[in-house]
């Protein structure tokens, strides 16, 4: 399959089931909502080193937030359900509670699994906190120097998908970066997914385990590292001198799939030789996103 001259390889991205929460952070201005969101999602690229993966899903207009103020939607994922509430409590507590004018709402109110976030943070109120029910939802009001911090009592948790990906195999580093940026820009409008890495792009693709160091759980993806083409069992086609990866986490498979579709399409630009995806032979992750099926518009997962 060729899209605008770019070969879409007949392979699939292999992704994992994760647990995901969605946070709606609002602020007096878009700036302050974003400030909190950026801090909250900071240093959350990969569960391997950060215990969670997080990113801004999208910016929300006033009419789309619970309190009618500008906001930002954030997804945060962990590998297991036990650690998700901990991560939320740490991060909301340190980055939203502290940030002027912001409030923090649950973005998955329908999810039956409820995580006690406001409920845990309320103790910061030192007995002066107050809870409030509006509609069906309960909030905590924590007195702070500025006024009050409002945080929802519980946040929904559902199964999500982590590690959707595709690799852009390009003639040179500039072409790879341009293609990656184009992909990221289109995916930014897609609901339900985040790109947890810096700018949405990963240069350090990894493989499971190590050829040399027993304790390493992940090491560089030598098969796709151009500099190692001569010394390792390379997977790189001829003429490929730089590879960048787009990693996607999302609330479910379809969200990842449609994000991959627009992302791959955008990445099919001059200077890109091929698009491929990372997998582990299909044995580790339950979610398989077949690139060609995605691009044909059919069901991508198998």
């Amino acid at each position: 399959m060729i899209v605008r001259g770019v070969l879409i390889e007949d392979t699939f991205a292999e992704a994992f089931t994760m647990r995901v929460a969605r946070l709606i952070i609002t602020g007096r201005t878009p700036r302050w909502a974003r400030e909190a969101a950026l801090k909250l999602t900071g240093f959350a690229t990969s569960v391997i080193g950060c215990k969670c993966e997080a990113g801004i899903e999208r910016e929300l207009a006033e009419r789309d937030t619970p309190d009618g103020r500008p906001g930002v939607s954030v997804l945060l994922l962990t590998m297991d359900k036990e650690s998700l509430p901990q991560r939320l409590i740490e991060r909301v507590g340190q980055t939203v509670l502290t940030c002027p004018t912001t409030a923090c709402f649950d973005g998955l109110p329908q999810a039956p699994d409820r995580l006690p976030v406001g409920k845990a943070l309320r103790a910061f109120g030192d007995g002066f906190q107050a809870s409030k029910v509006v509609g069906e939802r309960r909030y905590w009001r924590l007195p702070v120097m500025e006024g009050e911090f409002l945080v929802e009592e519980t946040f929904g948790m559902q199964k999500g998908v982590g590690g959707g990906n595709f690799l852009i195999l390009a003639e040179d580093a500039d072409a790879a970066l341009e293609a990656a940026e184009a992909a990221v820009a289109t995916i930014a409008d897609q609901p339900g997914v985040i790109l947890p890495f810096p700018g949405g792009v990963v240069r350090s693709g990894s493989k499971v385990g190590s050829k040399r160091y027993k304790r390493m759980i992940a090491t560089t993806n030598d098969a796709y590292s151009p500099t190692l083409r001569a010394v390792t069992e390379s997977q790189l086609p001829d003429g490929v001198n730089s590879v960048l990866e787009i990693v996607l986490d999302g609330v479910d498979g379809p969200a990842i799939e449609s994000a991959m579709r627009v992302g791959i399409d955008a990445a099919c630009r001059p200077g890109v030789k091929a698009i491929t995806a990372g997998n582990y032979g299909g044995k580790l992750g339950p979610h398989h996103f077949h690139l060609r099926r995605i691009m044909n518009g059919g069901p991508a997962t198998a």
Partner: peptide, 15 residues
């Protein structure tokens, strides 16, 4: 106590 804009009230009034 003070004069301020309580966020919960905003929610409540919008509701």
């Amino acid at each position: 106590a003070c004069t301020y804009s309580p966020l919960f009230l905003r929610l409540c009034l919008l509701h």
